[in-house]
């Protein structure tokens, strides 16, 4: 590899990390979302997962792709909902508590991933 190519590769890496596309963070969160969340929240994150569309859920799962609704929820609210389940945030008990299944780090990563899905930030923390 020439010196200029090495510099270019390094620059691309720095830009990718700065833009938030570091694969070491995004991949596990996306995997965890697919493994644990998609069954109810759906492959598009819009709340239309197989447990919902098959008629299994009495309460519709949250639409993670809805920027307006999601921006009203703080990151801490999302963290509490994932950790302690719906009951922890006065929502449906159909949302399980994942705090004994996922680590605190994995849950933090999922919160970041939810922000990517909704393409939104919390309007308040």
């Amino acid at each position: 590899m020439t010196k200029s190519a090495t510099v270019l590769a390094g620059l691309i890496g720095v830009l990718a990390i700065a833009a938030g596309f570091a694969p070491a963070r995004a991949a596990p969160a996306e995997e965890n979302y697919r493994l644990y969340c998609v069954q109810c929240h759906g492959t598009l994150g819009n709340g239309e997962g197989i447990n919902q569309t098959s008629g299994g859920l009495a309460v519709s799962p949250r639409n993670h792709a809805n920027a307006k609704q999601m921006s009203e929820l703080s990151d801490d609210h999302l963290r509490q909902a994932i950790t302690g389940g719906g009951d922890a945030v006065d929502s449906s008990e159909l949302m399980p508590a994942w705090g004994k299944t996922l680590t605190a780090e994995e849950i933090d990563e999922l919160v970041l991933y939810l922000r990517e899905l909704c393409r939104c930030e919390a309007s308040r923390q």
């Binding site: 069954q39 109810c40 447990n51 299994g56 859920l57 009495a58 389940g85 719906g86 008990e93 159909l94 949302m95 399980p96």
Partner: peptide, 8 residues
């Protein structure tokens, strides 16, 4: 109702 079992 109290647990999420029925969801899946």
């Amino acid at each position: 109702k109290q647990l999420p079992c029925i969801g899946c």
